[in-house]
Computed example of a mutant assay.
Amino acid sequence: FFSAANYSCGGLLSYISGTLQSPFYPGNYPDNADCVWEIQVTSNFRVTLTFRDIQMQGGRCLSDYVEIYDGPLRTSPLLGKICSGSLHTYTSSSNLMTVHFHSNSRYTYRGFQADYYSVPADQSTS
Rank of each mutant, 00 (worst) to 15 (best):
L62R: 12
L96V: 15
N44W: 05
G58F: 09
C35K: 07
R52T: 11
Y90G: 01
S3L: 11
T19Q: 14
L73Q: 14
G111C: 04
T125S: 04
H100L: 14
D64N: 15
R60K: 12
S17H: 10
Y15V: 04
T108E: 11
S14Q: 13
S14C: 07
F101P: 01
C83A: 05
A5R: 13
P26T: 07
S14K: 12
I39E: 02
V41D: 04
H88N: 02
T125F: 06
G10Y: 01
L13N: 03
D34E: 15
I16G: 00
T91K: 00
L96R: 07
G10A: 08
V41S: 01
R74I: 11
T48F: 03
Q113M: 13
P77Q: 07
G59Y: 06
V66C: 09
T48H: 09
T91L: 03
I68A: 10
N95I: 04
S105G: 15
S76Q: 06
T108K: 09
A114S: 10
V66Q: 04
R46E: 02
S22L: 04
L12W: 02
S3Y: 14
W37P: 02
Y29F: 07
G11S: 07
D31N: 14
Q57C: 06
S14G: 12
Q57M: 09
G58R: 09
C35Q: 10
H102R: 15
S8R: 15
S105R: 10
N44H: 13
S126Q: 03
D115C: 14
G71N: 07
D70V: 11
S118A: 15
Y109W: 04
Y25G: 02
T42C: 09
H88I: 02
I16R: 09
G111V: 10
R74Y: 12
D115E: 15
P23F: 09
Q40L: 11
N28M: 01
S118Q: 14
P77K: 06
Q113V: 15
L78W: 00
P77T: 05
Y116C: 05
V47I: 12
R52V: 08
L12R: 10
T75C: 02
Q123I: 08
Y109H: 08
G27W: 05
F1T: 13
Q123T: 06
W37G: 09
S22W: 01
G111K: 06
L87P: 00
T125W: 01
Y107F: 10
A4V: 13
S118G: 10
M56C: 08
H102E: 01
G71R: 06
Q55L: 10
A4P: 04
P23H: 04
G27M: 09
S84T: 05
V99L: 03
L12N: 08
S126D: 06
I82A: 03
G80S: 06
T50A: 07
S22T: 05
V36R: 11
H102Y: 14
L96M: 12
A4C: 08
R60V: 14
M97Q: 00
V41L: 05
G71F: 04
G27E: 10
I16H: 05
K81M: 09
N104W: 00
T108Q: 14
A33G: 02
H88V: 03
R74K: 11
S86A: 08
D64T: 11
G27V: 05
D122R: 10
Y7W: 15
T89L: 00
Y116N: 07
Y7H: 09
T98F: 02
T48W: 00
E38P: 00
T19E: 14
Y29H: 10
